[in-house]
Each structure stands twice: as structure tokens, then as C-alpha cells.
Design a protein around this nucleic acid. Structure first.
Lengths: 145, 145
DNA sequence: TCTTAAATTAGAATTATTCTAATTTAATGT
DNA sequence: ACATTAAATTAGAATAATTCTAATTTAAGA
């Protein structure tokens, strides 16, 4: 009995980290947000669209409306719990890895995957136009089957 | 009178190049396509959305439907007369420069501009996943006011 | 000129996403 | 514990860019 109890207590590290980020953000900790974080972070770094999340929510028989899914993904992105990525796709992708890094995008499967930072290096950062400030540098390597 | 005639004959180099591409493509040369190319290429390399083109068409009092503008931009892209670019924007951008190159995107003004190829260099191209083939490498430097 | 496949068009449809406005809830102060 | 209030959730409507449909027109080759 004690053993079962211990196993139940064992929480996923990535989930806990994301929950901590949520707690230390100005966002309120709601059951929807907690459940979404559990779904999104349980398998470590990965990539998904709002529709992917919607399907996973349904599969888990959670009742979280699509509007809430969009709200949460956007709020999480704003507060650095997620990162969003735009590609040659009509959908917005989200990434649990919020650190600066780059991506492969397979145009056949529409799947996104990380490029290790060490695997790509930009040797000549171009000069930013006068009066503008740098936001981010995104490298997308488009691949196909 | 002869002089006026000569000036009228003087055609824009970029426009002529694009018209030649159209002629040597399998696409039919229609008045709509010719007019669009004249509008798009008259000022050399630049960037625009379908809506930008729609406004310019209206300004020139041409009657080209929005459906045709979309059809043409897509066909031109497919046949390498234009190139399309996706960014952290809900709109698709088109570029008269079809050669491989990179972009600044200003998130404040939503304007796209070219980065000279010589101004950015990727020193370590990451290893493409097995069974996939490389399509393109796109570097977007997001900037803001 | 005839033929035919391609192009154009208006307007409807689609799709991802955002908005609205009513209801519920979390967190704070009493 | 309880009341207050701002934030969150929700269903469904709205939006906006883009694509589709199906009827008409046109370019280009026989």
C-alpha cells in the first residue's frame, strides 16, 4: 500500500517545471491550465498545434473548450511557458522548449522537430537596420519525404 | 513625336524578365497575368501580400478579381516567377526575388526586407534526418521598432 | 476558324483563430 | 469561513485570409 502511494506521488519532471512556471507567473492556477500542462509536458520537448491539443484533450475525456485551449496556449506563450513557431503552414505551432533554438519542418508530414543549437551556427549576423532592435533569429530547415 | 514613341517603348528590365519567365512557363499569357507582372515587378525586388496586390490593382483601375490574384500569385510561385515566405504573421508574403536568400521581418510594421546572402552565413548545416531530403533553409531575423 | 484545356470570375465555403458576453472560479481581504 | 473582484472559462458568433465551385470566357494549337 505504501509502495502504491509512492508511485502515485512520482510526478513528471517536465510537468513539475512547467507547473512551477505557471505558479510563479501572474496567471491563475486553474484546473484547465493544470491539465493542459500535464498533457503538453508529460513527454518532454515536443511540438503541437491547437488542434493536436484539442484531440488529446478529448482523448483524455477532459472537458476543456477550444476557446480555452487557444487562450491558454497564447497566455502560456506570453509568459514563457511555451514558445510559438510560424512555418510554411497555415497553423501556429507551439513548442515546450522555450530556449532559443532552430527547427526542421517536414512539409510532407507537417511535423516540426528541434535542431540542436550546437548543430547550426550563424557565423555572420547581419547588421540590423538603423532604429530597429533585434527580437529573434529563426532558422527553419524545410525537409520532405 | 518620334521621341515620345521611343520613351513609350522603353520597358522595365525586371518586368521584361518576369514576362519572359511567364512566356517560357506552361502558363498561358493572359492580360491579367501580364498586368499583374507589370505591377509586381516594376520597382525591382520587393515584397507584398495578396491584399497589397489587390489594393494596387484597384488603384490602377484594373479589373482583376481577388480570386485571380490568388490564383496568379500561387501559379507564379509554383513556376518560380515568385517566391512565397511565411512569417509570424497570418498573411502569406510574396517576393520577386526567387533566389535563395534570407529576410528581416519587422513585427511592428509587418514589413519584410531582404538580407543580402553575403550578410548571413550558416557555418554548420545540421544533419538532415535519415530518409528526408533538404528543401530549403530559411533564416528570418525578427526585428521591431 | 474550330477545338479544347486552361483561366477568370463572383460568390460561397473553409479553416484557423479571435471575439463577445454571460457564467464561473481563484485568490485576496475581512 | 465568507464576500469581493478581477481573471478564467465557455458556447457560439464573428473574422480574416485563403480556397473552392461551377459557370463563362479566352488563349493557343490543329
Amino acid at each position: 500500500m505504501d509502495l502504491i502511494y509512492i508511485i502515485t506521488m512520482k510526478k513528471n519532471l517536465h510537468v513539475n517545471k512547467a507547473l512551477d512556471l505557471l505558479k510563479s507567473s501572474p496567471l491563475k492556477v486553474t484546473s484547465q491550465r493544470t491539465r493542459l500542462i500535464e498533457i503538453l509536458f508529460k513527454n518532454g520537448d515536443h511540438h503541437f498545434t491547437a488542434e493536436d491539443v484539442h484531440k488529446e484533450v478529448d482523448k483524455n475525456k477532459y472537458k476543456i473548450s477550444l476557446a480555452t485551449i487557444y487562450n491558454c496556449l497564447n497566455q502560456f506563450t506570453k509568459h514563457d511557458i511555451l514558445k510559438s513557431v510560424r512555418l510554411s503552414s497555415d497553423k501556429i505551432y507551439f513548442d515546450t522548449n522555450t530556449k532559443a533554438h532552430h527547427h526542421f519542418f517536414c512539409v510532407s508530414t507537417e511535423k516540426l522537430s528541434d535542431i540542436k543549437s550546437s548543430d547550426v551556427e550563424i557565423s555572420n549576423l547581419p547588421t540590423i537596420p538603423k532604429d530597429k532592435k533585434l527580437k529573434s533569429v529563426e532558422v527553419v530547415v524545410n525537409i520532405s519525404d
